[in-house]
């Protein structure tokens, strides 16, 4: 679809509208795509992740469900095995705890256990992230759990352009994809809690962003920061501060955790020799450790100038009070300090 706009006038959309546009376009293109989940119908999702779709496609294809997460995911599996392409929303990723058997023992294992005979083209969507004082049961990101489980692709977009293109790819993929959207990035009026760009250029025509291709958010030469979702924006703010001190930061947003584009990280490290991995999931046994372990296994490909650093939720639950929440979710000041320590502590 072409239009007469010049490049400078490309349409801007917030994250949630970009995500919904991808779903709408895929539903229009492919009658096997349908949505189910709590509140996804009439009100378009409590995070507006399916807004307008119920009106456009009707209650058969955009289905409000009971509060029954096991039934939602189990139903998605059965429908996918029979050739449909369900998009099942979990609302808060924390609710995976209610239905983890369907994820851990069923959705992730069916294709493998069937020796490839059964395909499960389904998408699980869920909102993630802290920053609005929702406390320990409604603030987690948990992408590490999904990534740790073989057989699931994991998508974590950080901006509206990626949100649309990665959703298109997720729906077209013949495998289970967990697509996690950070509440702070959605661009909803009541959830604008990060000082970051909420609306970016999003082309109207459908486009698909391949999984496993990182985006270089910012070029730099002294330190490589790997960050996902909300942390990409915090890293950008930190990088601007560090720039003033003469420290040049390169930011890499892998965009998908499974598959994970390590080559882009290695290439960046060949230039900078310094690594900081920032995550909003728990610290231990998680994503930050995995990335640094892979770097350690490939030390022959580059020369590190400092021991890698990581920032994540420091192995506590996420507290309620804003005075406490800020202490456990990595903040811009923590990133600045971590980069400074990388610069000041050569190997």
């Amino acid at each position: 679809m072409s239009n007469a706009n010049t490049a400078a006038e490309v349409r801007k959309l917030p994250f949630y509208m970009a995500m919904v546009e991808a779903i709408r376009q895929e539903m229009a293109r492919d009658s096997s795509v349908f949505c189910l989940g709590e509140d996804v119908g009439q009100i378009g999702g409590v995070f507006q992740s399916t807004v307008g779709l119920h009106k456009e496609f009707g209650a058969e294809r955009v289905r409000d469900t009971p509060i029954s997460e096991t039934a939602i995911l189990g139903t998605a599996l059965g429908a996918a095995a029979q050739g449909m392409r369900p998009i099942a929303e979990l609302m808060f990723v924390d609710f995976m705890g209610v239905c983890f058997d369907q994820i851990l023992n069923n959705i992730s294992k069916t294709t493998y256990m069937s020796g490839g005979a059964v395909k499960l083209p389904l998408v699980i969507t869920a909102s993630t992230g802290g920053g609005i004082c929702d406390a320990a049961q409604h603030s987690q990101t948990l992408h590490g759990y999904f990534a740790h489980t073989p057989g699931i692709k994991v998508v974590i977009p950080s901006n509206p352009y990626d949100a649309k293109g990665l959703m298109t790819t997720a729906i077209r993929d013949d495998n289970p994809v967990v697509y996690l959207f950070h509440r702070g990035l959605l661009g909803l009026p009541v959830l604008n809690f990060i000082d970051a760009q909420f609306a970016t250029d999003v082309p109207e025509e459908p486009y698909a962003i391949p999984f496993g291709e990182a985006r270089i958010v910012r070029k730099g030469s002294d330190v490589t920061i790997v960050a996902f979702a909300q942390m990409v924006h915090k890293a950008r703010l930190a990088a601007a501060e560090l720039e003033a001190q003469g420290i040049s930061v390169e930011i890499i947003d892998p965009r998908t955790l499974v598959p994970l584009d390590m080559d882009s990280i290695y290439t960046s490290l060949s230039k900078t020799g310094r690594l900081l991995v920032i995550d909003e999931d728990y610290l231990s046994f998680g994503v930050t450790g995995e990335i640094i372990a892979r770097v350690a296994e490939n030390l022959g490909r580059f020369t590190l100038k400092a021991a890698p650093r990581r920032l994540a939720i420091p192995d506590v639950n996420i507290p309620y009070s804003p005075a406490l929440e800020n202490q456990v979710i990595p903040q811009v000041s923590n990133i600045v300090e971590a980069v400074e320590s990388l610069m000041n502590n050569p190997l």
């Binding site: 096991t70 039934a71 995911l73 189990g74 139903t75 998605a76 599996l77 059965g78 429908a79 996918a80 095995a81 029979q82 050739g83 449909m84 369900p86 058997d101 369907q102 023992n105 069923n106 294992k109 069916t110 256990m113 069937s114 020796g115 005979a117 059964v118």
Partner: peptide, 28 residues
């Protein structure tokens, strides 16, 4: 864990886990 898509049969090692799968197939 026997899967035979030609006759639409599947079975499952977790007690009760396959019940919603039938619901999904019925929805399809």
């Amino acid at each position: 864990h026997l899967y035979d898509p030609e006759v639409n049969f599947a079975c499952n090692g977790i007690v009760g886990a396959g019940i919603p799968h039938a619901v999904g197939a019925a929805l399809a």
